[in-house]
Design a protein around this nucleic acid. Structure first.
Length: 443
RNA sequence: GGAGGGGUGGCCGAGCGGUUGAAGGCGCCGGUCUUGAAAACCGGAAUCCCGCAAGGGAUCGGGGGUUCGAAUCCCUCCCCCUCCGCCA
């Protein structure tokens, strides 16, 4: 039996209030390039206010408990202490009012805290995307004897990418994959899952694609990014569900509200799911082709580990994702994101960018993050140390291993030939039932 | 969809108005015994908040209510289970 997930519970925000209280300047500085620094002073004021009120109400409660005990004793003696009871009535009202006031303050604090992003790791360059650092490159972009086409031209010429019909079925930013493309998509999923389970030690897991608000909040998607999510409408006030924007959400929250044993860590999971994103605010970006879709497949890697091990696990996670590109012989580079470009829940993120000759650019194909205790705190994911002490928040990590649609794109662009055909990478052939080349006939 | 049952500590499971932060078991930590281990026995240990501390407060699915006082009574929401119906 697994523990019931806690309904979001006051005072387990993603940043520990104590850290803000004790190091307000450092926190504000760390958040400068990430957003939220302006909340720090307000939080400090609220925190002071809250503590003052809590102290006051608790002394009243202490009195209530004492008098209650006196009444109980009197009753046992057969007396009826009318004046004590009358006093308790008044006390009870006062306590109720003060508690309500504390609740108001806590509500405001919680709302602010839920909007604060994670603090960056010291090794992360400070600044916006222009401060991102290329860590390494692998592979040499192929020299083409002809002008390499973008994937949408390659795919439409082969009759395997169909944007028009997808728009008819749904709307723009969807695609229909025909024949060899659908086959390739499936092969890629299989190939990635096999690699990570057989060689990298991940356990495969299959999860719901629709999750509730607690799960979204626990992993940092809500409340801040509601406009990026597809949401269901339930009749008669039923609780809505959200379509997952990444498998990171359900897979990380598998252990929400649980206390794991240190000796079970690290947990390493791999999951294949479709991902659904509104892409609000991306109007005009990547409108052609299947770079940015409302629905795409992804194989996701998730780890739950101890604070001491998490940065080592981040490096190996990146290596595991890189291995997919290496086996597919797709040139790529690894980029360490600067503070301002690092995602909300993450303390440190490496992006893998694959070379797309049709666009003449490296484009993101994986994002690998160490969220440290940010999600663990929100989602109450803890572990009991071997030494038997108090339960500690775990560290959670995630990374794409890889985005399948973009991998398909990369193959179409990197492996295209002058005659419009596309060669299937060697590593994928065990999964394509003998198909070695996509031509208009084979497609 | 109809009818019932239930949500308690790391896990299982008692309690059903005051002496219960909560019996018992399992698991965990320490000790005795042992060449070592196991078994047996003894002891320890929930979490969060406020406080320099002493100490105090809160927490038995969430929220609200009744009461001087609630894990225990009432309302409401969420979730799980069993049976019947329906169904990929």
């Amino acid at each position: 039996m697994t523990a019931a997930a806690p309904a979001a519970y006051f005072f387990t925000p993603m940043l520990d209030v104590k850290v803000i209280r004790e190091h307000p300047e450092e926190v504000a500085r760390a958040l400068e390039t990430r957003g939220g620094a302006e909340s720090v002073q307000r939080l400090l004021d609220l925190d002071t206010d809250r503590r003052r009120r809590v102290t006051a109400v608790e002394s009243l409660k202490a009195e209530r408990n004492k008098v209650t005990e006196q009444i109980a004793q009197a009753k046992r003696r057969g007396e009826s202490p009318a004046e004590d009871i009358a006093r308790m009535r008044k006390l009870g009202d006062e306590i109720r009012d003060l508690d309500a006031a504390v609740g108001e303050v806590e509500k405001e604090m919680q709302a602010l805290l839920l909007q604060l992003p994670n603090l960056p790791h010291p090794s992360v360059p400070v600044g916006g995307a222009q401060e991102n650092q290329e860590v390494r490159r692998w592979g040499t972009p192929r020299r083409f004897a002809f002008d390499p086409k973008p994937h949408w031209e390659v795919g439409e010429r082969l009759g395997i990418l169909d944007f028009e019909r997808a728009a008819k079925l749904a709307k723009s930013r969807f695609v229909v994959l025909w024949g060899a493309a659908a086959r390739l998509e499936r092969a890629l999923v299989q190939f990635m899952l096999d690699l990570h389970t057989r060689e990298h030690g991940y356990r495969e897991v299959w999860v719901p694609h629709l999750v509730n608000a607690e799960t979204m909040e626990g992993t940092g998607q809500l409340p801040k990014f509601e406009d990026q999510l597809f949401k269901t409408v339930e009749p008669e006030g039923g609780r809505p569900l959200y379509l997952i924007p990444t498998a990171e959400v359900p897979v990380t929250y598998l252990h929400g509200g649980e206390i794991l044993k240190e000796q079970e860590l690290p947990k390493r999971y791999v999951a294949y799911t479709p991902c659904y994103r509104r892409e609000a605010g991306a109007a005009g970006q990547d409108t052609r082709g299947m770079i940015r879709q409302h629905q795409f497949d992804k194989v996701e890697l998730v780890k739950v580990t101890t604070p001491a091990a998490s940065y080592g696990e981040l490096e190996s996670l990146v290596g595991n994702a890189e291995e997919v590109l290496k086996r597919l012989e797709l040139p790529y580079r690894v980029v360490l994101l600067a503070t301002g470009d690092t995602s909300f829940a993450s303390a440190k993120t490496y992006d893998l960018e694959v070379w797309l000759p049709g666009q003449g650019k490296y484009r993101e194909i994986s994002s690998c993050s160490n969220c440290e205790a940010f999600q663990a705190r929100r989602g109450e994911i803890r572990y009991r140390p071997v030494s038997g002490g108090r339960a500690e928040f775990a560290h959670t990590l995630n990374g794409s291993g890889l985005a399948v649609g973009r991998t398909l794109i990369a193959i179409l662009e990197n492996y295209q030939e002058a005659d419009g055909s596309v060669t299937i990478p060697q590593a994928l052939r065990p999964y394509t039932d003998g198909l070695e080349r996509i031509t208009p006939v084979s497609s």
